[in-house]
Design a protein around this nucleic acid. Structure first.
Lengths: 347, 347
DNA sequence: TGCAAAATTTAAAACGTTTGCAATTCGGCA
DNA sequence: TGCCGAATTGCAAACGTTTTAAATTTTGCA
């Protein structure tokens, strides 16, 4: 109720004890008499005492925070990734009394600089790194620095060990291929992005591996690439693929947003999904359930992954053990209505 | 590059200066010789010096953080609200060198307790409060405590002054009514929630006011209410409204999620939107663009609002002036294909 | 050259907590 | 009653920074 915060000194004075004793009593040290501990706990509760984070951090070297550098985003979010991710992290952290710090990278500012600032200022005991790039200076920095972190995603080469959790996109894309192949499709399209993120390789490689496994030389794969945030270019790339006389009968998109574009453009081109064209996405964004005829996609359960990432990170922070934690989550197929048998005839 | 952080003491020692001088030089105090300031800045840059947040906070009493208590959410997020809101806050904060702290309320934990903890621990210089309830103990606490905050949303009664930013839902719902009335609709339905949030009143009152303004006694309004997170109950409530022989010809939903349910159930009941039924939502979630035939709704530009909230809060923190800041943002109509003329005949 | 004023730098306290070590109190036994 | 060890409590340092007040150096002018 008071306008000022209660401090340990005040609490100690009101109890006629030393600061040391009160501090220890609240921490539950057994060397403090049980009766004293109870008396202190009672007084602290009544006074609404909450220890000052800055002071505690300063002396203990632990802030109780985990950092996340906010991905710089385009003008419009089209999915709930960030919300789910942050919610999941929060859920995982709160179980251990930790909280989340969100550091935003300003427009002109490199994400690495923000990360460095978070780390060097001692704001956080560990960080989560998302959207892993092919050459990721953030991971290199954190490793050099010996700072606890967990990556959401992976590097392509495993030059060094680190903690990561990734969605098994390779497996999903293989599964998508197998399903489509069994439905008679032989001519495939992949819509991907030009940004150097590792997940595009992992997923594309998973697709290629599944094709190779099948060993059918009649299988063909076309690839369309466009910048992630350039909607115009994306539409162009999709249309180039759709309007060729020998267009694919099945298109796999790197993620739902691209798949939705494919469905929109297919409709505009007079194609009926899935009769003329099968489309499969990845992420299971909310809109994928609403976009007619309902997009078949994979659910990566972001929130759940984030929760596990939080757990991993807290483990890493607690015991700076050498053994790197890794986790590969298999996404689940969400079969809706955008895939079907390959069209029988083709000119 | 070093594994340990650089401290002010080390920096001072390496420069042959006192800690005081280095601190002041970095802060840009004019009393320090220009040449010294430059020399210090150079050395700090090279050493990668970043001041320790805990120490700075402890002595200055300012953490440079703004707090947000994460709304406890149901198992599945259906929109990107949180992501947009957090992004907007981050954008607003980073311009002033502030960052965001996200505190999650555990399942069984009251949001107020988490808020109290954030405030009393000195983690944050101010907080943002969302989802204002009819009787909101958080606002009461913050006011009693004299702690800087900005509310996203408003209380119904203006017993005391506080800083808020709200979307003008009342105006939007009035606008929706006017548009539908002019299209010939006379029988309206409102789908709302049972949770005691103030925005449902503000929007419903806006609708009622518009009806009253029109002064047409033939206008009729039915209201369906269901718990926010109980999908089953919501569907039931919607169907009760839809399956009455004299169902409304136009339904306004408190927000898009409800409107999407209305459209789904209407389709299931064999009704064609907008021929048989007009539907209007609020929020402009991504799915509303994809749900056939395209939901007419209002865009509240969450991200923009959040950015302004951040600005307001930083102002409040900087100058604890008495004048309360308030801002009422008018949402823009996003006309899509879910509204149209009232059906001509009715049994 | 000397002295006051201006310019520049520094010592030390403070912020609120944790913790190593020392001091005090207590109970039991001779 | 006196003493020892165990139980309990307290002193003081430390964490890294900002800031007040004071000390030191430099400059300008007689």
């Amino acid at each position: 109720m008071p306008a000022r915060v209660t401090t340990l000194k005040e609490l100690a004075a009101s109890l006629g004890l030393s600061i040391t004793t009160v501090s220890r009593a609240l921490a539950g040290h057994r060397q403090i008499a049980l009766k004293t501990r109870e008396r202190v706990a009672q007084a602290a509760r009544q006074a609404g005492y909450v220890p000052n984070t800055a002071a505690r951090t300063l002396v203990s070297g632990r802030s109780g925070f985990v950092g996340l550098v906010l991905p710089i985003r385009g003008p419009n979010l089209v999915d709930s990734f960030l919300g789910e991710f942050v919610t999941g992290l929060g859920e995982g952290l709160v179980a251990h009394g930790a909280d989340l710090i969100l550091a935003t990278a300003a427009q002109d500012q490199a994400e690495l600089a923000v990360l460095r600032h978070v780390v060097e200022s001692g704001r956080a005991d560990g960080v989560v790194v998302t959207r892993i790039a092919e050459v990721d200076e953030r991971l290199a920095y954190l490793r050099r620095r010996g700072f606890p972190f967990v990556a959401h995603g992976r590097l392509l080469d495993n030059d060094f060990d680190y903690n990561w959790l990734d969605t098994d996109g390779a497996h999903a894309f293989g599964e998508a291929f197998d399903m489509l192949y069994d439905l008679g499709h032989r001519h495939f399209g992949l819509v991907t992005i030009s940004e150097p993120m590792t997940f595009r390789h992992l997923r594309q490689d998973g697709l290629a591996a599944a094709i190779a496994r099948r060993g059918d030389p009649s299988v063909r794969l076309d690839v369309a690439t466009a910048p992630r945030f350039d909607r115009g270019a994306r539409i162009q790339a999709v249309n180039r693929m759709l309007q060729r006389p020998d267009r694919p009968t099945a298109i796999v998109a790197l993620f739902d947003e691209l798949a939705l574009t494919v469905m929109e453009e297919a409709a505009r081109a007079g194609l009926t999904v899935p009769r003329d064209l099968s489309v499969i996405g990845f992420d299971n964004v909310v809109a994928s359930a609403y976009a007619p005829p309902g997009l078949t996609t994979f659910d990566a359960s972001i929130r759940q992954c984030a929760r596990e990432i939080a757990d991993m990170l807290l483990t890493v922070i607690a015991e700076k053990s050498a053994a790197p934690l890794t986790s590969l989550i298999r996404p689940t197929l969400v079969p809706r209505a955008s895939h079907g048998p390959a069209p029988l005839t083709r000119s």
